[in-house]
């Protein structure tokens, strides 16, 4: 029997996550509301007098808003791990005959599933009210979405793995999620004279998710899309590897 990876373990955890996703509709609703507010309230309001590189503001931020939803949903999903730990459900999985690597892939893919469903909802709404997209575009958006979501879920899960209290949650939102969002070109293109701001936006892997999505949807990008894709893949590998290592150190006894 293979000790490193068990497909049945991954499947069991994904099934659990899908059931929870379908059952807890509040989670879905609450995470899809703010992207829609950004897209329609801020997007529409600034439309009249803001254009970026000949795109209307609402068009410009549409890829950013899809990316925003991936970011917020995926980080929060990772943090639910703290809940699982608190309420002991995780124990059942930790004593099962499956490795921590399998646990990680089950959790990560479960998170990607939820995030992709939300992304599809946003694309449909956006397709009707904002920007008509072709099927090939939608397919490419979903592919990039899956990779980005996997990367960000890993970040969330790694924080979930090392954090013990739910109070840490808000801290993560303020000090990680929002900065990642604001330093990413999602709402505006960062062309700052400050080297620091440019630097932060360049080491932010999420910047490249936004940039690829914008290339696919508007054929506009700040970086070479191949370069962005390369960074995205490398970041996903590194972050998942770190998270697996952190999963191996989760202690069952509190």
């Amino acid at each position: 029997m293979n000790d490193i990876f068990q497909l049945n373990g991954v499947k069991a955890i994904i099934i659990r996550e899908i059931i929870v996703f379908i059952r807890e509709k509040e989670r879905l609703l609450s995470s899809i509301i703010s992207p829609l507010l950004f897209l329609f309230i801020i997007g529409r309001s600034l439309n009249q007098n803001t254009t970026i590189e000949s795109y209307t503001y609402q068009h410009f931020i549409f890829p950013g808003i899809i990316a925003m939803n991936i970011l917020f949903t995926s980080i929060r999903y990772g943090l639910y791990l703290i809940w699982d730990k608190r309420f002991d459900f995780l124990k059942e999985v930790l004593v099962a005959p499956i490795s921590r690597t399998s646990l990680f892939f089950g959790k990560a893919l479960g998170g990607v599933f939820g995030s992709v469903i939300e992304m599809i909802i946003l694309i449909i709404i956006g397709n009707i009210f904002v920007l008509k997209l072709s099927l090939i575009q939608i397919f490419l958006i979903i592919c990039v979405g899956i990779i980005s979501s996997f990367m960000i879920v890993s970040i969330g899960l790694s924080i979930g793995a090392v954090t013990k209290t739910i109070e840490g949650f808000g801290l993560v939102m303020s000090f990680l999620t929002w900065p990642m969002f604001l330093f990413s070109n999602a709402l505006f293109e960062i062309k700052s004279s400050s080297n620091l701001i440019t630097f932060v936006s360049k080491i932010n892997p999420f910047t490249y998710s936004v940039d690829i999505l914008r290339k696919i949807m508007l054929n506009y990008s700040s970086f070479n899309p191949l370069y962005s894709f390369f960074i995205l893949i490398i970041s996903t590998f590194i972050l998942s590897y770190i998270t697996i290592k952190l999963f191996e150190r989760i202690d069952i006894q509190k």
Partner: peptide, 9 residues
């Protein structure tokens, strides 16, 4: 129980 059964193969 169903999730458990898959976990245990």
């Amino acid at each position: 129980l169903y999730v458990h059964s898959i976990l245990y193969g």
